[in-house]
């Protein structure tokens, strides 16, 4: 699968940014920033994730540069002693991490991709795009502005390590004996909120619930590398990598998602 990725989409994730600069930025970053922001800007208990999906406070080159060079006064973010050139490289690296599919959509036959989405893949049974489709999976109308091409491709081909919040498949048995099947929108010790397979929302107090069975597998099939030809998969990703809502003015990278 890795191979397929490399063959089909060489270096696409960083398409906008000079790969050499990105690589240098990465090295600099790994030397001085990971202890707080995690490897590849993903986590860290001492600083915010710099490239995980959420709304960023700073996204322009200017703002990022200033934050890194001068630190953020009154917070745990120290200024950096690195020369400005190196700081610029780190900025390029962070921005490349944040790049989403729409920044450089891949080539492919998008019409064929759409046909697979609606037909052979039966994606629309579960996913809405531009107001049409199912409701069990996330709305994909803006997926290209939220995810990188790499992430979209992996979404279709690599099983998730864990099921994202809002999409946990469950079977719920009520005290009355009635049984509900669907996905959990939210849960807590005292209540759970689920969308059943008929599209009805259930608001349940734990008192009413006898048993909850959590599926270990997401409803999202991830065997598309087997079920589609490489060409079809490429066309499908090409279609998805263009699904971004038009916005006036600059797009906010990885705009916060609803669920």
């Amino acid at each position: 699968m890795r191979l397929a990725w490399l063959v089909l989409f060489p270096l696409l994730a960083f398409a906008q940014h000079d790969p050499a600069v990105v690589a240098q930025g990465r090295e600099l970053y790994n030397r001085s920033c990971t202890q707080c922001h995690g490897a590849d800007g993903t986590v860290g208990d001492r600083g915010p994730a710099l490239a995980a999906r959420r709304r960023y406070i700073r996204s322009s080159e200017e703002d990022l540069f200033n934050a890194i060079k001068n630190g953020i006064p009154g917070t745990g973010m120290p200024g950096s002693a690195l020369p400005p050139d190196d700081v610029r490289k780190i900025v390029t690296y962070i921005r490349s991490l944040r790049a989403t599919a729409i920044d450089a959509p891949i080539e492919g036959n998008t019409a064929k991709g759409e046909a697979i989405f609606n037909g052979k893949g039966r994606c629309r049974d579960c996913h809405m795009v531009n107001g049409q489709g199912g409701i069990i999976g996330p709305d994909l109308s803006n997926i290209a502005a939220e995810r990188s091409i790499k992430a979209i491709h992996e979404g279709l081909t690599v099983p998730r390590p864990h099921i994202p919040t809002g999409f946990q498949p469950v079977r719920v048995v009520l005290q009355s004996g009635a049984e509900l099947r669907g996905i959990l929108k939210n849960e807590h010790n005292f209540s759970l909120q689920m969308l059943d397979m008929n599209g009805k929302l259930h608001l349940l107090s734990r008192d009413e619930v006898k048993e909850v069975e959590y599926d270990t597998q997401s409803l999202m099939p991830t065997n598309w590398a087997q079920r589609l030809t490489p060409e079809e998969l490429k066309d499908l990703v090409a279609f998805l990598s263009r699904q971004a809502r038009p916005v006036d003015g600059p797009r906010q990278p990885n705009a916060r998602r609803r669920r």
């Binding site: 629309r124 099947r181 397979m197 008929n198 599209g199 009805k200 929302l201």
Partner: peptide, 9 residues
């Protein structure tokens, strides 16, 4: 048992 797009909420 996937819900139809315009299902029964």
């Amino acid at each position: 048992s996937l819900p139809a797009a315009a299902a029964a909420q």
